Computed example of a mutant assay.
Amino acid sequence: MPQLSTILAAAIGLAVGAHTPILAAPQAPAPSVTEAAVPARLTARLPDDILRAEKAAKTAIDYTAAAGETYYFDANSEPVDKASAGGYYRKTLGKTADGRLVVQDYYQDGGKPQTAPVILKKGANPHSFANDINDSKTVWYRKDGSIEAVQEFKDGTPTSRNRYYQNGILALESDAATPEKDDPYSAAGELARGTRFYYPDGSLLALGDLSKPDVSVLLYYRTDGSPLMRQTVSNGKLDLNIWDSAGKPAASPESVKKEELDAAMTRVLQLLDDVSNGK
């Protein structure tokens, strides 16, 4: 399953709290707006083999096919002995030359693929839906057949961001454990390693650090790559740095179109909610 990381799960709560003063509670104290150095424009786009779901999901697994077993899971992805409504089932397809199992998962209701074929690490128990037994690129599908997420694994350890797709385009990425080579957004510094959000056309919407329970930072961008806002939540206090389209600091949220700010923050919240609910 494309499991929502604890970081993203925590981010939902952080984001809701951070956005409440502007989006849902005008009676709350106004956030403080301060000046800060203007971040670099980020106009680059990710390559198509990451940005576009069909290209990102391409796999090439070499294995010897063989009749295997079927394993069942309930709707909570827990192993069970027989088919369970709303659950899943896994078929073993064969083995690689070095003896690793190749499996594919399906939705119990309807029998459509829930993953593409994936290699499990040596000695893995195939009756487990944990991601830490995967040993190849893993592609997850929604019930309608669209690509939901893609992530690379090596011996059970993620070697890429977990990437979620909507309408065939990258929508959200989990954080990266280490700096990425040739990262087009490296000019954002350490924040570039954090969670990333994208507009429907695949341009960068926001990136930042959502890994800590008491402090979060998100840097928002317009579709043209100009910085829009830096949002910092620290121990319940919200601080904003806002820039107009010319890159000049805004003295208050009213200095920038409220619709522009609301639309950006609303999409971040919506994407977090969509990922959490498997949409």
Rank of each mutant, 00 (worst) to 15 (best):
Y220A: 08
Y221M: 14
Y221W: 06
R222K: 09
R222G: 01
R222F: 01
R222D: 00
T223Y: 01
T223K: 12
T223A: 08
D224I: 07
D224F: 00
G225N: 04
S226R: 11
M229L: 04
M229W: 07
M229V: 04
M229P: 05
R230P: 04
R230V: 11
Q231N: 05
Q231I: 06
Q231R: 12
T232F: 03
V233K: 09
V233N: 15
V233M: 15
S234V: 09
G236S: 12
K237G: 12
K237M: 11
K237Q: 10
L238P: 03
L238C: 05
D239F: 02
D239Y: 01
L240C: 00
L240W: 01
N241P: 06
N241Y: 06
I242S: 00
I242F: 00
W243H: 01
W243I: 05
W243S: 06
W243N: 04
W243M: 06
D244E: 05
D244H: 06
S245L: 12
G247P: 14
G247N: 15
P249A: 02
P249G: 02
P249Q: 05
A250I: 10
A251E: 08
S252W: 07
S252P: 14
S252D: 12
S252C: 13
P253H: 04
P253G: 06
P253E: 07
P253R: 06
E254Y: 01
S255K: 13
S255W: 09
S255N: 11
V256I: 04
V256L: 04
K257F: 05
K258G: 11
E259L: 10
E259V: 15
E259Y: 08
